[in-house]
Nucleic acid binder design. Sequence first.
DNA 1: AATGGGTATGTTAACGTACTCATAACACAA
DNA 2: TTGTGTTATGAGTACGTTAACATACCCATT
Lengths: 343, 343
Amino acid sequence: MARRPSNDTGTRPVSMADVARAAGVSQQTVSRVANGLPNVNEQTRQRVQAAMQELGFRPSYAGRSLRDGRYHSVGLCVNDVTKFGNLSMIDGIASAAREHNCAITLVEMSKTEEFSLAEATRRMAALPVDGIIIGMSRMAPDFETFNPLPGIGTVIVTMYAHPRVTTVDSDHYGCSLLLMDHLFELGHEQIRYIGGPSFSVDEQFRRAGWQDALERKHIEPAEPLEGDWSANSGYEAGRYLAENDRTMTAIYAANDQMANGAIAALRDSGLRVPEDVSVVGVDDSLDDFVAHNELTTVRFDLHQRGREVFEHAVPEAGTAGKTVAIRIPGQLIVRHTTAAHRV
Amino acid sequence: MARRPSNDTGTRPVSMADVARAAGVSQQTVSRVANGLPNVNEQTRQRVQAAMQELGFRPSYAGRSLRDGRYHSVGLCVNDVTKFGNLSMIDGIASAAREHNCAITLVEMSKTEEFSLAEATRRMAALPVDGIIIGMSRMAPDFETFNPLPGIGTVIVTMYAHPRVTTVDSDHYGCSLLLMDHLFELGHEQIRYIGGPSFSVDEQFRRAGWQDALERKHIEPAEPLEGDWSANSGYEAGRYLAENDRTMTAIYAANDQMANGAIAALRDSGLRVPEDVSVVGVDDSLDDFVAHNELTTVRFDLHQRGREVFEHAVPEAGTAGKTVAIRIPGQLIVRHTTAAHRV
DNA sequence: AATGGGTATGTTAACGTACTCATAACACAA
DNA sequence: TTGTGTTATGAGTACGTTAACATACCCATT
C-alpha cells in the first residue's frame, strides 16, 4: 500500500497545517475558518480563505471522522442493484439520507449467490458507516442465529421479523389481502396465482397472503404457478392457465411485469380482460414502459419505507432502538383490468 | 455534535488498545492479528482473537484511512437514482467497484433542478472517496469553466468532451447512426424522430445522430417530436404521426419505452408494424416488462462503461491520467419491428 | 562460550481534525 | 490605576491505526 510522502515536495493532500503555515496563523484558526465559526477577525479569515483557495485545501474526511466518531453515511448492502425491489429501496433511502445530509455507502454483494448476514455485516462494518442496512430479498442461511454488531444500528429490509434486529419492509402480505378483497367484492372466487421465484421473500409473503385470503373464505386454492418476475414468464403462465383452467375468473400475478405478460397471453388465447378474466398485479411499475397502463395493482410508498429504514439504522440520540418490525401498507390502485364476475 | 465518552464506562467503540489491554499484549500485536500478519505466536493470536470476539472489536475505518491515505470507495453523484441511464450507471460501476474491492459512496442531488459541477465536486470531496464520478445527464451551467479538484480523480459521465476532465459515456450519437444505417438498408428514407426532453444530453446526441444521418444522404429531416421518455409520450407522438404524416415509413424513438408507446399508437391507428411502418428504439430495456419483446434497438454494454468510468476515476498508480473522452459503442439488435420498405 | 540469524513482541511517531483550555490584547467602568 | 469582561488567537491533546524501528529471546553454528 503506497504511502504518501510526508514532506511538502510530494503529492500529499493539503492539510490545515499547510494552510496555516501559508497564512501565518495556527492550525486551529484554519479549523475555525473552515467550519465558519464566528470568533475570527475578518482580515484573518480572508487571508486564510485565500490560502485555502491557493493550495486547494480539502478537509480530510478521515481526520474529521476520527475526531468526531461519526461518518455521516449509512451503509447499504444489496445483492442486485437493478432489481425493482432493491432499486426502489435505494431510491427511498437516498431521499431520506439526503434529508439528513447523509451519504449512502453502497455495496453490491453477489448478484446470484445467497449471502450470510454475518458476512454482509462484517463487510459493511469495515466501511465508513453510522448504520447498516441489509436488503434480504432471499432468506439468509444464518437469519435465525444472526446477532447484530453491538454499537452500530442495523436494519434488515425484509418481511421476516427478528428477535434482535429491527426489520422494515413494505407489507408484502397485506398487499395480497387488499387485492384479494377487491376481487372478492367483485364476486371472484376462482383466483389463480402467478408468483415469483420461490426463494424470494417477497414472493413467499405475497403468496401466503393469497392463500390465506382464500382459505379464510373456505375456498381451496388451486396450484400456484411460479414465474421469474419477467413479463415472459407471466405470459407463459397466463397461456397455461387460459388453456387449462376453464373455471378461473381472475389472476393475481405477484408483480406488474408478470401481470402484463399474463394479460397478453389471455388476449392471445381469445379471452378478454377484464370481461372474461380479471387480472391484478403489484408494484405499480408499468407507467414508464406501457402506454395507457390499465392494470389494477398495489402501490407502495417507497419513500416512507426509506425513511423508516434510515431512521432506525441511524437513530437520533435518545431514540435508541428497541427491536421492532415495521410493515408499511400499500395502497390499492383500481384501474381497468378488474371487473365484476358475471355469474 | 455529541462526542463519545473517552473512558471505558461509556459506549465508545472498542479500539485495538482496548483489545490489547484485555489480552495482555501491545496494541501493535492486536494490529498484526487483525491484519493476519504471520509473525504472531499461535497462542497469542488465539488470545487476541478471543478478546476481539468478547469485546466486539471492529476496526476503525477513520483511523485506518487516516493512516493509509486511501478510502477504498469511489464517489458517485447523480440527480435521480431511478432514471434508466443513472440506474445502469450505478449497476455498471458497482460491478467494477466490487472487482476492485471498493465501495460506492452515493449522493443523490436534486431530482429536478440542475446542479453545478463545482457544487457536486465540493460536496463529494468532503466524503470518503478516492475518486469522483458525476453523472451529467443534463448540461451543467458551469461545464465549460469547470476545473476538477487537484489531487483527486474526476470523471464526468456525459457525451460532451472536456479539455480538463475525462468524460466517459455510451455512444449516444453512434447508436443513432447504427439504427439509421439499418433503416437505410431496408430502403427507408422518411424517418421521423421521437426524442426525449431537450435538456437531456443523451437526447441531444441521439437526435444529432439522426439528423446528421439524414443530411448525409441529402434527406431533409422532418420536424422532430419531443417526448419525456415515457411510453405515454411515445404513444401521443405516434398517434400524431399516424394521423398527420402519410409519407413516413419509419420511426426512430430515442428510447425503447417511447418506441413501445409509439407502436401501440400506430396499431391503434390501423397501421401495421413493421409492414406499414418500421419502429426502432434504444436501450434494450423492455425485456422484463413486455412479453415477446420484438423491438429492434441498440444495446449498450453498461458494465464496460462502468469499468471505464471507475478505472479513470481511481487510476492505478502509474496510470496517472491524461484527459480523455471515451465513447463506448452500442450494438444493434435487430428484432421484428423493422422490415424492408415496400416501394 | 561466543556469534549470528531468525521469531515474537513492544515502542514511537505520524496521519488531520476539533475540543478544551490558556493567553494576549483591548475596551470600559469603577 | 485597577478590575472585569470580550474578542482573537495559539498550544496541547486525543481520536485509532500501521510503518518503521528497537528489543528480547531461542536455537544453531562456529
